[in-house]
């Protein structure tokens, strides 16, 4: 028999997958505005990305999520006529401060793109490339060790260890994308930005990339842009919803997909947007 009390209040709230409150902040963005010429692409974005967690950016095409991702390692700098305002701090250091070392920033904040883009070189040389140009390996033995380590971390080693000298272009689409992840990991970044890393892959290759993302967060802070909401739900600890250049809501992924705070988010997630 159950008995009711006069006051019935919620006992359990939806909890986050990870302990979000206790995680230190890796990236802190405040009042970020971004312009392509006179067009404002990002409006007053403020968000913190906790260390060693996965944050997913979702939103309709053109909402600014990729633009925002690219502000985190100053990839937009190469586009003429762009302007950025506000602050982006990584480990407390403003990456847009005059005199900031952009090469060092991109070493620290690696990026994986939507379309895999291996160099027309061998598998080994693809992964070794960043190590060589940054002179991060003291000798050939260390170079080999770090290539192997990166390929293992990218869950590709067992598939390619016997053909390291063959062309990377002979790998499948999913393998090429993991090779690009290995190439990013080889220089030991602290943050990995992923722009729709599995959008061109079949479900099996996608599943491998997703498993890899979950595995990599033990060591890295990961920010991923995805159009696939189920993917965001599967791999991320936090989800941020962008719309028309504005950040509408950031929440734990569980909360976002079961009970978002904002109606706009709910409309988007339930597919009733627009």
């Amino acid at each position: 028999m159950s008995t009711t009390s006069a006051k019935i209040a919620p006992k359990f709230e939806v909890k986050s997958r990870a302990s979000l409150a206790s995680a230190p902040t890796k990236i802190s963005v405040s009042n970020l505005n971004f312009f392509y010429g006179r067009t404002q692409a990002l409006n007053d974005i403020t968000v913190d990305v906790p260390e060693r967690m996965v944050m997913a950016f979702i939103g309709p095409s053109g909402c600014g999520k990729t633009t925002f991702l690219r502000t985190l390692n100053r990839m937009n700098d190469v586009i003429p006529g762009t302007r950025v305002g506000g602050n982006v701090l990584i480990d407390g250091q403003d990456i847009y401060t005059p005199g900031a070392d952009v090469v060092d920033l991109r070493r620290k904040v690696g990026m994986v793109f939507q379309k895999s883009n291996p160099f027309p070189k061998s598998i080994f040389d693809n992964v070794a490339y960043g190590l060589k140009i940054n002179r991060l390996a003291a000798n050939n033995r260390e170079l080999r060790d770090r290539v192997e380590e990166a390929l293992k971390d990218a869950a590709l080693w067992t598939e390619v260890k016997d053909r390291l000298k063959t062309s990377a272009l002979g790998l499948s689409g999913g393998q090429q994308q993991r090779l690009c992840i290995a190439r990013a990991l080889a220089i030991r970044p602290e943050v990995i930005l992923m722009d729709e890393p599995a959008s061109a892959l079949d479900p099996i290759a996608t599943s491998k990339i997703e498993e890899l993302i979950v595995d990599l967060k033990k060591q890295y802070t990961i920010v991923i842009v995805t159009h696939n909401m189920q993917q965001a739900a599967r791999v991320s600890d936090l989800t941020a919803f962008f719309l028309l250049g504005k950040l509408i809501e950031v929440n734990s992924t569980e909360k976002m997909f079961t009970a978002p705070d904002q109606k706009l988010t709910e409309d988007y997630i339930t597919g009733r947007f627009g």
Binding site: S2, I8, A9, P10, K11, F12, E13, V14, T258, A259
Partner: peptide, 10 residues
């Protein structure tokens, strides 16, 4: 309605 789990609360 509220995403609140009140089972076993009362």
């Amino acid at each position: 309605a509220e995403a609140a789990i009140i089972k076993h609360r009362h």
